[in-house]
Design a binder for these strands. Structure first.
Lengths: 307, 307
DNA sequence: CGATCTTACGGGATTCGTAAACATA
DNA sequence: TATGTTTACGAATCCCGTAAGATCG
């Protein structure tokens, strides 16, 4: 016994129309193929469902019982299939991702707004965590993927570079360097610098890029907005990547491109290699692969963009 | 998309076992056939259900959603099919029949007891009505069939003779005729006779058989038990068919075969020609066709049986 | 290298459509 | 006789099993 959707639909059509010819049309079948379908169903079940002659078609007692059964079953099956179709059509789903703070607060909102406009049924969960935690969450399958800074490679993870960041000196408009169009590390070292905590991906890049560490490090903070506040208060300057510029722009600060020994920072997408992405995740990934880089470049100051 | 039971069972097996080879065995299929089955399901649905390599098989996000759907659907389908199987195995069902009083109270109970022993799940509804009403109820599809006396033939009805009745004089043991082994109509006409109402099938047979109607009709009643009471009270004799004898035997009365001009009365089974009997009805019909005649003959008095 | 999934392919069953046969009002 | 179902039959498709191929730990 291999009851199928086609059986049920054919049965229902015949039970409703009580006419082989019309029910066959309704099922897009020849009348003869339809007749065979019904009689197969009957012999599979082991009972007659319809009492029929050339003039009348009617449900038998058992056919009426089967009609009850199918009337209950069909809508449930259709509903289940419709739900699956929702996934296929990206009308339903869930993506979980982790992203470092500069990404999740700076560039993601705009991209996610677009994503939600395109796929309103898909819910998105964003974990705003440090780069190392991002990677852990991917490893532990807590998220579908992560957007973070450079990741130490592993067989478990697939890494893609989505965009590259460059760095800027952030200072008040009144700062002595504010008139310069481009700076070198050396230009900065004479001023006190607001630094980020060790765990921060910005700090890690700068530590790697600028050695020996000759900073006049005046403060060490863990959020971009705190750094912005301190710079605005005249307590120092700071160095931040393109992705973080929006935060300082909000504070009315000035950004000047800085050339570092390692001048570019990779913004990476990290996924597990061993799982198939959900369709929802695939949709968001496609959007990010297409638009992430442009969005990052759009964050650069007008003058620096032509660099 | 033609989702079938086989698809769902295969999916469930693989989702549970997470191993193609073992799931294939569970479904009594070759591993390769099973693999094709799953990948057909996936392409029908338009999504990957399992992320798999040679070492691991796991549900994708969409596969997990489908598992929810199928886990809900499968038991319901199985339950529906089990219900249909109940009908096939005669564990479930309903028969409605109409029968004239002499049948429904005399011979039916024993036959129905046997039927209910054989098919405890099938419910039986008996309508105890006059012969003409029996036929109407068959015509109106209120019952599956009827057991009654002779029926005027029609294309709508199929009539079968299940047994033949003969007639007996019913009298007290003290009656002058009580010593006789066999009687003729003439022997009776000198005694007052308890008659039955016009509608009764016994009356109709006697009216047709004995003409001119020369009865000394003392009383006209409509039930066998009333007639029995009157006869027992010495108010007259009566004439009754084999099927009704049990009632008079209960009252301690004597029964003597009577030879009538139309000596036998057909006990008929009436069904509609245009409907297929339910399996439950078929089962009861089979039992009646097999045992009804024997049961009627068993009702005849010991002496008369050898006639 | 070994276990496991996928692909290739031939044979058999199923299903389809056309057309003829059959049944009933 | 007209309408509508079943049967007959050849063709296309689907499904299965064997066997070889590919892949991953």
């Amino acid at each position: 016994m291999n009851l199928s959707l086609r059986h049920m639909k054919a049965f229902t059509a015949l039970a409703n129309l009580r006419n082989f010819t019309r029910a066959a049309e309704h099922c897009c079948l020849t009348q003869s193929a339809f007749s065979a379908l019904i009689s197969n169903l009957e012999s599979d079940l082991g009972l007659k469902l319809f009492s029929r002659n050339t003039r009348n078609v009617d449900l038998t007692a058992e056919g009426a019982a089967f009609q009850q059964v199918v009337a209950h079953l069909l809508p449930e099956i259709e509903r289940g299939l419709a739900e699956m179709r929702d996934y296929v059509e990206r009308r339903k789903g869930r993506v979980a991702l982790a992203a470092i703070p500069s990404i999740s607060s700076g560039i993601l909102p705009g991209l996610l707004a677009r994503f939600t406009r395109d796929f309103p049924g898909i819910s998105v969960e964003v974990q705003d965590v440090a780069s190392t935690v991002c990677v852990d969450m991917v490893r532990n399958r807590q998220v579908d993927f992560a957007l973070c800074a450079a990741v130490s490679p592993s067989t478990e993870l697939a890494i893609e570079v989505l965009a590259r960041d460059t760095f800027y000196l952030i200072c008040p408009h009144t700062h002595p360097l504010a008139t310069r169009a481009r700076l070198d590390v050396q230009d900065i070292l004479v001023y006190p610098v607001i630094g980020f905590e060790r765990n921060s991906s910005i700090r890690q890049h700068l530590d790697a890029a600028i050695y020996p560490r000759q900073w006049l490090r005046s403060y060490e903070v863990n959020s971009l907005s705190t750094a912005a506040g301190l710079v605005a208060a005249g307590l120092g300057v700071t160095i931040a990547p393109t992705l973080a510029l929006f935060q300082f722009r909000l504070a009315g600060l000035h950004a000047i491109p800085v050339s570092l020994p390692i001048n570019e920072r990779d913004i990476c997408l990290a996924r597990r290699t061993d799982t198939t992405d959900s369709l929802a995740a695939q949709a968001l990934l496609a959007l990010l692969r297409t638009h992430f880089k442009d969005a990052v470049e759009a964050m650069a100051p007008a003058g620096a963009a032509a660099r």
